[in-house]
Every structure is written in structure tokens, then in C-alpha cells.
Computed example of a mutant assay.
Amino acid sequence: MGLATEHAPGVWELSERMEPTLREMGERSDIIRNMHKALKADGLERDPMTFHIHDGPPEAPVTGRIVDKYLSDELGENLTIVVDGIDGRTHHVAGIDPARVEDARIGSVVEIGPPDTTQRPSDRTIAAITEDGVYRPSRHLERAKFEGRVPGGDYEGYVDAHVRRLEALRRAGIAERIDAGQWRIPEDFESRAVAYDAGRNRQASVRVLSVLDLEKQIGADGATWLDRRLVSPDASDLAPAGFGHQMREALDQRREHHVEHGDATRQQNGRVFYRRNLLATLRDREVVRVGAEMAANKTLPFRAATDGETVSGKFTGTVQLTSGKFAIVEKSHEFTLVPWRPVIDRQLGREVMGVVQGGSVSWQLGRQRGLGL
């Protein structure tokens, strides 16, 4: 192991790396033992040679089902997640923000990847407004009013949000405030802003692809993760063993489910064709069913929102469906279910308004919205 050197017969020098190395080996052994235990509890056996213990966020996205998750520290600030991957490997990833997986449970399908280092829309806007290295909020306000693209018409709040972003970057030494109405913006402003965010955000990015396990997705009436895989039939990332193999079997069973229920047809040559707009059809079907069930326990009737419709009312809560998480929006005489987005969580109990567009909602929340900052 290179942790001890014999200088003379019976005379040894121990490496200064001995203690941390042995401690790391002990921790690794504990991790492998816990991974075995979690897999066994789920009725699974995996070759330890396929175990991948990540020292930080994965360099490439890891997709699979959660077989274990537990607190990484005594303060409860971070989670460790064990993922049975579609790549045939079992991944151990520590340092996950609990808020990012609060809807996920054992069996849920997730994608864990590198930290999100995408450029903020606000930084692109600041760079575009800057003239001769100077950003002027007054100039920005004029242009925003001229273009008229600010949801809710809160132009002052829109510009103020960009100024708050510059305040944060000023403290990082990236932007400089000349006076109350002018900011000095460096030529490499955008790249430095991205680097600043990347340095602050060292946690892995997490997407919950399905709160349901594979077995429940096979017979579900909503739009599942399996359906999204079926309509984009690239299976090159599915390993022939482990969870990748189970995924292939589940896709076959889900395909048969659609054929049996008239949502797909099989030709004589064996090819399967799905109904047009399969995902939207399944989603709408589930929303109508769940809405009717909820109406039976409420004093309000349910009405399904249509694409292109403007919905408004009080945001009273959320409901988790197979097709995703939906917001409950109530009026005095009816309620509806619309796709949820994190941006409206702060509006719980308040009046909201948005436009339903292609399975999503463009919320018009004015100053509260944050406008992608």
C-alpha cells in the first residue's frame, strides 16, 4: 500500500498518509456494506465491481431508481442517495440537497448530474443593455417599456431584480457600482458570472423523473416516464444487465398495455404505432379522472383547463399525479388542476394567473415571479 518504508532491518517509517488512507478505506468499506444492505432489502443482487462511489457530483448524468437515501450529516443538511442505474452500475452520491428530492421515495426514478452552471437570463440581459462598458437601470427601464414583454407589466420590479443581481456580483468583485444610476460591467462579465455561480453551487443537480416505481408505471393511466422513453425509443443508454435490463422489460410491458387499451397498434411486421399526442392524451385523461375524484370530496365542481386558456384563482395546494405534480387553483364556483412549477410555491394561499401552454403554465406573477433570475 506504500504506507510504510523499511529503512533498515526492523526500522520502519510510517507514511504521513497512513491514517487518512486507512480511514478512507474504512469509510469505503462501510459505504459498500450499506449499498449491499440497501440492494438486498429491495430484493436485488449487484456485483460489487459495478459499484461507483462518487467523491462529488457525477461528471455525467446518472439515471436510475433510488434504492436508498439517508442523511449524510448530523445537521440534516445533506442526503446521500444510492441509485440503481440504467447503465448497469450502482451509484453512491453524497451531498444532495434534501429539498431537491422531497417528492422522491425508494423506487422513484431520478437523474443526478453535475451542478447546474447554465447562464442566467438576467446576465445575458445586463450584457445586452450595457453600452461602452456601463449598465444604466434607467436605460434598461426605457427599453423594457418599449418592448412591453414584462409579465404583469411590473417594469420597475423587473429592472430592480437585475440591479439586485448586480449587487451580488459587486460583492464578488465582478461588477462595480459607479453611482446610483450606473454600473461598470467588464468585457468578460457573462463568463465570470457563470463561474461565480458554479463556485457557489457545488451540489449535484437532481431531477425526479418519476415518483412511481417501474411496476406502478406499467399499468398507470397517466403519462409516465416509461411513456416518455417509448416515444423517444433510443435505448442505447440501457445496459443489458441490472436496472437497464429491468427497464427494457418494463418498456415492453408498457407497450403491450397501450396496445391492449387502444392507445397503440401493432402492425403485421411487428412495429408499434402510438396514438397521436400520446403523452398529452394520457395526461389529460388522468387529470380528468383525479379532478372528478377530488370534486367528490370538495364543495366545488372540477373543470379541466384547455390549452391556450388563461387560468386564475387562489393557489390552494398541490397534488402528485402519475403525469407529474399539479397545482390546485380554486375559484368561488369551480377548481382546476394545472402543471405545477416551483416558481408558484411562494404564492400558496394567494391569487395567481397563468396561461396553459403545451402541458405547462406560463405564470404571470409580476414582481413575485423573479423572471428567471
Rank of each mutant, 00 (worst) to 15 (best):
L279S: 05
V101C: 03
E309V: 09
G219Y: 13
G222H: 02
L39F: 00
A292W: 08
A41M: 05
G107H: 04
G219R: 14
T117K: 08
A195Q: 10
D68I: 05
A41Y: 05
I96A: 02
D103T: 09
L337D: 06
A223M: 09
A220C: 11
L169P: 12
D188F: 00
V319Q: 11
W183E: 03
H333Y: 08
D154F: 12
Q357K: 08
G359S: 02
L166C: 07
R266A: 11
E131I: 06
E19T: 14
G173F: 01
M35H: 01
L3F: 01
G366W: 02
R139L: 13
D284V: 05
A264E: 03
G76Q: 06
T90G: 06
R275N: 10
A292Q: 14
Q368G: 14
A250V: 00
G317C: 06
R164D: 15
L226Q: 02
I81C: 02
P339S: 03
E27S: 10
I328C: 00
R143C: 07
E260V: 15
G291T: 00
G157C: 12
Y196R: 00
I66K: 11
R266C: 02
V361M: 15
R105P: 07
G354E: 08
R171A: 14
D123N: 03
T310L: 07
H333P: 03
